[in-house]
Design a protein around this nucleic acid. Structure first.
Lengths: 251, 251
DNA sequence: CGTTTAATTGAAAGCAGTCAAACTATGTGG
DNA sequence: CCACATAGTTTGACTGCTTTCAATTAAACG
């Protein structure tokens, strides 16, 4: 890992740089170039829109702290959350080279973001092969997560579906140091969980209770604990491979 | 559109080249370069695997004729089809820069494919900016379709869900000249439809019948007709924007 | 033709949804 | 510090969409 990542860690983009560096060989120059991207630092309330469907995206926010999600609505107003984003995630790689947004991106909690002009990121992605490659890998991994979500929503019952989401969070939060083996702070309301799982809030409530009663999770406020993570993973049919967190050998 | 696309249309890669050219400015040189990619022409039976989960992908087949699909399995064997591919589609852009396949790709019907060594395509994508960009746009569009499928499976009832899939096919098949306004040949069995929709084959059968009885579709063998496409689209809550078929102005 | 695969139909069961109400936090202002 | 408002969680009773199980019919294939 390039040295720049170890020092001077006061740049809001560093979490993203680290994430990019996980999947591609970035030189010190590449890292400097990324850190030199223009950005606007902002703190947003929960629910703030970062991308609106049908509009032309002109920025790519990077999540510095807090959480965000992607969402689509049906004609009669039902909401489906299609992915969740954690600190360090660039929030609009998905529209980087598309001209009309096909879904919405919102903050899930109060969040700090660094807003990068889309053109600057586009230019960098096209002019610097290593950085472009790193961005592409992130896009491919997001697509892999979408596929797993199709499977999760399409073919798992409510218990497994919910357990799977909790396991995904556990692994992804752990990767950025926001979870311990004991558990983590789940930032979502049950209504949001329902929209991510294709269920109703009432049923999410009952299903959470079921997992709790069976000793698979514990709950205090927003904190979720995992007293039997192995059993939970088995119930969830969870295999973290689709997250592509392990860096493989470069070509 | 570069001239090469109009003439010499006996190269199996031409359908893919046309698709790439829809979303990026490709010079005549770019087109020649793409057509000069090494490939192996093969005819595959229905159900043949092009990519296997957990294996290292080493090729990227391009569909010349016939259909293909991406699929994942749960631990207890339930199958979810996560996307369908039509002639001209590159079948493994999704793993182009990932090192272990996270899902399976199979032919849906007997199909002609041109198998390109993955390394050759990777090199080209990294060395030629225009072609790399065109490939990236295709990857982004696939991701958009995954998102719509999450919404479809998560938040639409069986009627709307099935109708939505039929509408998606109508638009995509029409784009490559395989559908008329009257209808098209649907290459999927009801079991495969069920696996794409997160339903059971029995319920797909009943739902198809329901659409038929209500005059929204007609069925003869594998041919599906659309006597009331407008009503079907409305029922399906279908908006083709997520397919990003319209070429927007380049940057 | 006979065999296999796919489509169709019926009856019953179950998982998740709907509706409604109560309860618990959390936060605000007086 | 309490009264009140709001957002989120929890529970119960009931409904219903989809599944399951089983059997029949039709189509595709060698």
């Amino acid at each position: 890992m390039p040295e720049d990542l170890m020092t001077n860690s006061d740049n809001p983009l560093d979490l993203m740089v680290r994430k990019l560096a996980m999947h591609a060989d970035l030189s010190d120059d590449d890292v400097s170039t990324l850190r030199a991207l223009p950005y606007t630092y902002r703190v947003l309330d929960a629910g703030a829109y970062l991308v609106r469907e049908n509009e032309v995206p002109d920025q790519c926010a990077v999540l510095v702290s807090g959480f965000a999600f992607r969402q689509k609505l049906t004609g009669d107003g039902a909401r489906q959350i299609v992915s969740i984003h954690l600190p360090g995630d660039p929030l609009d790689l998905q529209h980087l080279f598309l001209d009309v947004a096909d879904h919405n991106v919102q903050t899930l909690t109060r969040a700090e973001v660094a807003i990068i002009p889309r053109d600057a990121l586009r230019r960098l992605a096209r002019s610097n092969a290593s950085i472009g490659h790193a961005i592409l890998v992130l896009i491919l991994i997001e697509a892999s997560i979408f596929r797993e979500w199709v499977l999760n929503v399409g073919r798992r019952d409510s218990r497994a579906r919910l357990a799977h989401l909790l396991c995904e969070f556990a692994v992804r939060l752990d990767a950025i140091g926001l979870a311990t083996s004991a558990g983590y702070e789940l930032p979502m309301t049950q209504e949001q969980l329902a929209d991510a799982l294709g269920l109703t809030p009432v049923h999410v409530n009952r299903t959470l209770k079921g997992l709790d009663v069976d000793g698979l999770i514990t709950r205090h406020r927003r904190h979720v604990g995992f007293p039997a993570i192995k059993a939970l993973r088995q119930l969830a049919d969870f295999n973290p491979r689709y997250l592509h967190l392990e860096r493989q050998a470069a070509d």
